[in-house]
Structure formats: structure tokens, C-alpha cells
């Protein structure tokens, strides 16, 4: 453990969840239009993703942005890599790149059932696993 357990928890969450969205609010109740649009793009693809609400603790956002070099929320990570915020995710959704990056088929099909088995609840950071 380093001296920064919150940053460790964020790094771990990014590592352990193939698709993870840091957002304001929750996928059911987004607290910002940009977060809502990003969730909508993921859900339109039936993508499975973990979500972290950054609002409960302002330090989450500070640490996340320090880590990612990205100043705004939401932030989408796929396989440990920052994909971008709302604008980039929306553009990629529209162009079909998002489905490709996520390795999902654009909808028409029923959502896949199997979820990533483990999104452990790290104490300083609440990660929820979602089925899209």
C-alpha cells in the first residue's frame, strides 16, 4: 500500500474492470447531462460496465484527473486505457468505433448475460457492476 489509498483504489478499479465509467451520479440516476449521455451510449450497445460515482468525495475526482491527465467527468476506461469523456464516447458511438472498442455487436441482439465476476467493493471507492 502506498501513502495514497484512494489513488490505489482508483488504479485497482481501472485495472480490475474491463470497462469502467467514472461519472457524476449513478447509471440509474446520472447527476449531470454529460454523464447521462455517456451512460446512454454504453447502454445502447448493451455494454457491461462498472460505474463509480465521483460525487460523494471530491478527492476521487482530484486523484482520478491527476492519474488520467483528463480534467472532466465522465471518464471512460476500457482495458485500463482512458477512452475519453462524453464528446469522444458520443462520437465513437456514432461512428461505430465504440462498439468495436468494447468488442460488442451494435444492438439488435439480446444483451449478453455473463457479467465480470468481480468488482470488489474497495473501501474508499464504491464500484458497482452494471449490466447494460
Amino acid at each position: 500500500m502506498s501513502e495514497n489509498p484512494l489513488r490505489d483504489a482508483i488504479e485497482q478499479a481501472i485495472k480490475e474492470n474491463e470497462v469502467i465509467l467514472f461519472m457524476k451520479g449513478t447509471p440509474e440516476a446520472p447527476a449531470c447531462g454529460f454523464s447521462a449521455r455517456t451512460v446512454a451510449a454504453l447502454q445502447a450497445l448493451n455494454a457491461q460496465f462498472a460505474a463509480v460515482d465521483i460525487l460523494p468525495d471530491p478527492r476521487i475526482r482530484q486523484e482520478l484527473s491527476a492519474l488520467s491527465g483528463w480534467p472532466t467527468i465522465p471518464q471512460l476506461f476500457v482495458r485500463g486505457e482512458l477512452i475519453g469523456g462524453c464528446d469522444i464516447v458520443t462520437e465513437m458511438y456514432e461512428s461505430g468505433e465504440l462498439a468495436e472498442t468494447l468488442g460488442v455487436e451494435p444492438p439488435a441482439d439480446a444483451p449478453a448475460a455473463a457479467a465480470d465476476p468481480g468488482a470488489p467493493q474497495s473501501p474508499p471507492l464504491s464500484v458497482e457492476n452494471r449490466l447494460g
Partner: peptide, 22 residues
């Protein structure tokens, strides 16, 4: 595209998320 956006965000530093909410 990510790097291009970062170049623009870098112009404003901490003002993004502060006085410039979005």
C-alpha cells in the same frame, strides 16, 4: 482524438472543472 482534446484542455488547466464547468 484523446490527445487533441488534451491539447485544448491544457490551455485552460485548472479552470476546467472550476470556472469553466464544461
Amino acid at each position: 482524438r484523446l490527445q487533441q482534446h488534451q491539447m485544448v484542455y491544457a490551455v485552460f488547466g485548472d479552470e476546467i472543472g472550476g470556472p469553466i464547468h464544461a
